[in-house]
Design a protein around this nucleic acid. Structure first.
Length: 282
DNA sequence: AAGTGTCCCAACCGCACATAC
DNA sequence: GGTATGTGCGGTTGGGACACT
């Protein structure tokens, strides 16, 4: 049985929104609030798909949308965050108040990707050479050169939060969570969010797909023993005979230590960390 | 001025996840 | 547990605006 389309396309307006449609949607949401997007166009009297209404509201009509050109600071931040998070536009947009994921995505595709591309090759070579083998394995940014057999990177944040922790949630990790993010009350999802905001080093984990690499063994130790297939001269590879082990303090070191955030003293990650820590409302 | 090419961005599309039943 | 539904996400597209010839 196939999935029912989100709405019937028959008789619906498509393309650019008119001022009247905007006003209708705006007034409806002001009165009834957002949500129930499927029913919204019917109840509001709009000949639009619910998804279309949602998109129009989130990307254009929302009152907290910031208009105008993207500043140099924002520009710089987008580049740095993209380096950390990849194409997770909603996450990046979350760091830029008033900017939407669509706007940032467009801005990246039209401006920044070209800008970054021209600098990527030389930086990549330099950075790889300054990292230890373990860090290169763990915090391996996407290489600019495509490989023939490339690991699938899950782009959705919701997927990634499920990748790292096993359902068992070993006690060592629970303790770590409670200690590092007491306000999260030990909830892993909150902790992920906190770490993502505060430290950014977890983003390096989010950049990789650990779903089939990582597991906890009987001693609450995280084992990385999958075959990491890449072309970055990482020999010998991690294997079941030669696993990379993290236990208790090791995890903390990798997540919060200087080596994680500032793997290269001259790295721009350092300045990003400083910049982010200076913002109280992240 | 007219034709053509390029850029930019709003909107669309399909997929994945969360939740309800 | 399986299915349907609602929502959110990233990738892609279409068309208007602008630049160039």
């Amino acid at each position: 049985m196939g999935r029912r389309p989100c709405c019937s396309k028959d008789g619906l307006n498509r393309g650019a929104w008119t001022a009247l449609e905007d006003r209708t949607l705006e007034e409806y949401i002001q009165i009834h609030g957002q949500g129930s997007w499927r029913n919204l166009p019917i109840e509001a009297g709009l000949k639009r798909c619910g998804k279309s209404c949602r998109l129009r509201w989130l990307n254009y009509l929302r009152p907290d949308i910031k208009r105008g050109n993207i500043s140099e600071e924002e520009d710089d931040l987008i580049i740095r965050l993209h380096k950390l998070l990849g194409n997770r536009w909603s996450l990046i947009a979350g760091r830029l108040p008033g900017r939407t994921d669509n706007e940032i995505k467009n801005y990246w595709n039209t401006n920044l990707s070209k800008k970054v591309q021209s600098h990527s090759t030389s930086k990549w070579t330099h950075k790889q050479s300054t990292l230890s083998k373990e860090k290169r394995i763990l915090f391996n940014p996407t290489p600019p050169v495509p490989t023939t057999e490339y690991r699938v990177v899950r782009t959705k944040a919701t997927s990634c939060t499920k990748v790292f922790f096993t359902p068992e949630e070993p006690a060592a990790v629970n303790e770590f969570v409670k200690e590092k993010a007491p306000e999260s009350d030990g909830l892993l999802s909150d902790f992920i969010a906190d770490l993502d905001v505060e430290g950014l080093c977890l983003s390096e984990f989010l950049h990789s797909d650990f779903s089939d690499l990582c597991r906890f063994d009987d001693n609450n130790t995280i084992r990385l023993d999958g075959n990491i297939d890449n072309n970055n001269d990482l020999s010998p590879p991690i294997s079941s005979d030669n696993p990379l082990l993290f236990h208790g303090e090791n995890i903390e070191q990798y997540w919060t230590g200087v080596n994680c955030i500032q793997c290269d003293p001259t790295s721009d990650l350092q300045s990003l960390d400083t910049f982010l820590n200076a913002k109280e409302d992240w």
